[in-house]
Write a protein that binds this DNA or RNA. Structure first.
Lengths: 228, 228
DNA sequence: GCAAATATAAAAGTATTACTATCATACTAT
DNA sequence: ATAGTATGATAGTAATACTTTTATATTTGC
């Protein structure tokens, strides 16, 4: 499992980039350092010029990989969701027990990333933080429909759908499986954000996790199928 | 009730603006037209220069009301949440029946705004759309803690807390009332967004509303107090 | 009714952003 | 050894996000 994760390659829609950042050393430095910088200074303050200075490369070279920083954010987000999807699929694949399967999925999808396990140029801990703080900005735009059509959000959509399927597997009478699945994924990011910045608006803290909250919510809401 | 709403004045933290836009004709035009423009072109493309052209005023005059467009967004959002809070408080105030009270609150907080009822310079229908598409951007920033400290989000926090209180009133054993309240408010905006742009990720559509989804979710989750 | 204060408009200026374009150089593959 | 590709250096452009200054209009206080 550990070994597998070391060598995974997330298949990202190649319209997101101009040149595959995995294909060169410069590309990997762009990804690696952009994660550190966006985490440090936030997406708004982050610019390709600053990134160029940091990696001792040229602004124009970065533009050969990504059209703009929005596309870079889409790339990072896709990578993150692809990575989570991979972890979830691996963990739940062999599980026949429906409740255990759903529980495992919720656990993986709502847990915070505690340590950087891949030993690659991508720091998953920081990437998780970036997704919490910046992911919404990648779709709350006027271009969202065109970009969705171009497949920029396929991985995320597939992930929500996988969760939906496991919900249906456990309770095929529940009328809102898609909404519940999207609420879990989006809501979990939101609860982490609240925990950090608006602790009065959440019950999650050092002792209670978003995972516990959503696990409880889901199993209060769903009823197991009668057919087993 | 209608009359009341016509004449309400939402008390907004006066640190958000440099000069109260309600205090002058120009100020009102700034609010009125910024709502139309942000809805049309999105918050990213909206600038004070363009707004100045539109209202046939000068960019520098707008800067005398708001430091920047971020502050204007905070103002619009505060107004919106204050207006919703007002509607909710009016509607639920006299209700003694706990379940009815909570149901009414959820209804008001998760319903889409269908018509502009205030006849003022503020179009609530468009403001609701703006909140769906842009609200997250107002707090997903590096300045959020400072701005929170300065009270820029008090109205929203108060609203979540009011909902939390009604949840507790109905089920004082439920361990996550704050998280549930924040999930309802944030999740409802998200479901509306999905309905518009990612219909596969939600069960909400022309016939099923986010209100129905959350009403169902909440009452599957909560159990009434035994003490009545 | 007039002066003083205040609000708005007009215009110009600055630093930064978000790119694009051109050309030079280095590295690589045959 | 050469052609092709990747990267670097430099400069340039249009727009953004303001700030500053000065002029003009409007309000208000007496």
């Amino acid at each position: 499992m550990e070994r597998l994760i070391h060598s995974i390659r997330i298949g990202i829609n190649d319209k997101i980039y101009l040149k595959d950042p995995e294909s060169s050393d410069l590309g990997k430095r762009i990804i690696e350092q952009s994660i550190l910088m966006i985490d440090e200074m936030g997406f708004e303050s982050f610019t390709f010029r600053k990134l160029g200075e940091r990696i001792k490369s040229n602004e124009s070279s970065i533009y050969r990989y990504f059209e703009n920083k929005h596309k870079l954010l889409l790339y990072l987000a896709s990578w993150y969701w692809g990575w989570l999807e991979y972890k979830m699929v691996i963990a739940t694949n062999g599980i026949a027990n429906k409740i255990e399967k759903l529980q495992l999925a919720i656990e993986i999808l709502t847990q915070t990333v505690e340590e950087d396990i891949s030993f690659s140029h991508i720091n998953e801990v920081l990437l998780n933080k970036i997704v919490i703080n910046e992911y919404s900005k990648s779709y709350l735009t006027k271009e969202v429909d065109r970009e969705n059509k171009d497949g920029y959000f396929v991985i995320y959509k597939r992930l929500v759908n996988r969760l939906r399927e496991m919900i249906v597997l456990w309770d095929d009478q529940y009328p809102y499986p898609s909404s519940l699945a999207s609420t879990i994924l989006e809501g979990s990011l939101h609860q982490y954000f609240l925990q950090e910045h608006f602790p009065m608006l959440t019950d999650c803290n050092e002792t209670t996790t978003p995972t516990e909250y959503f696990m409880d919510l889901v199993f209060r809401t769903l009823k197991p199928n009668s057919n087993g």
